[in-house]
């Protein structure tokens, strides 16, 4: 474990907590893409299949349980408890256009042609594009609530910090995982224009409103 990875995990944790607080306090899921949350649930389920078979550390296990539990709770809030506030018209991204190519790529490009490894690779590739329905929804509605912007900033920062973690691990431990790094770079790049908007607008107290 290193400071970059710890900050990355804390940023990821903060993103999930910010999202839950937004939903619980405002009792609304307006502006939140249920499809992205479903993709994140798929990512966590596929990646943490080894939750019961391989023990890394208490921290690792607790975080996995927390991530899986909260993402399914988020889906419950979106599609059941606060269903009336879910904006399905604007959440219209065709996720099959993500899942099929990512699934195929996981079969073709992986570290080992073994079921658990292919599923892990699928979760890494899927995570890099899982935010697209959410960014697409914001581009369609033309704006994002400030709290949603904080959620996205924390979520985008988590993988950017992981990139720093991989640089550190390469020089400190000789650890290198090309698949995770390439997917992490793609994932972080997808947030770049949002990061720009966040820093130029939200940090100055303005709301993010894209030219609709």
């Amino acid at each position: 474990m290193n400071i970059f990875r710890l900050c990355g995990d804390m940023s990821h944790l903060a993103a999930i907590i910010i999202l839950l607080l937004k939903m619980w306090k405002t009792r609304s899921v307006a502006g939140i893409s249920g499809k992205s949350q479903i993709l994140f649930a798929t990512v966590f389920t596929a990646r943490y299949l080894d939750l019961f078979t391989s023990f890394i550390s208490i921290y690792n296990t607790c975080m996995k349980v927390f991530f899986i539990g909260t993402v399914y709770f988020t889906i419950y809030l979106i599609y059941m408890k606060f269903k009336a506030t879910y904006d399905s018209n604007h959440d219209s991204f065709r996720v099959e256009f993500l899942i099929v190519p990512v699934g195929g790529l996981a079969f073709l490009v992986n570290h080992e042609f073994a079921p658990l490894e292919i599923i892990w690779t699928f979760s890494i590739y899927l995570e890099s594009v899982a935010i697209l329905p959410q960014l697409f929804m914001i581009s369609k509605t033309g704006e994002a609530e400030t709290i949603t912007s904080h959620y996205l900033f924390a979520l985008g920062s988590y993988r950017a910090l992981y990139l720093c973690n991989w640089i550190y691990r390469y020089y400190a431990e000789g650890f290198f995982d090309l698949i995770a790094v390439v997917a992490g770079v793609v994932q972080t790049i997808l947030y770049c224009d949002f990061f720009y908007l966040y820093i130029t607008k939200v940090m100055k107290g303005k709301k993010i409103s894209l030219p609709a």
């Binding site: 995990d9 990646r47 080894d50 890394i56 690792n60 996995k64 973690n165 650890f175 995982d177 995770a180």
Partner: peptide
């Protein structure tokens, strides 16, 4: 590629 046998990252 020398990722550990098991993936130790979240």
């Amino acid at each position: 590629y020398n990722n550990r046998e098991e993936h130790d990252e979240l």
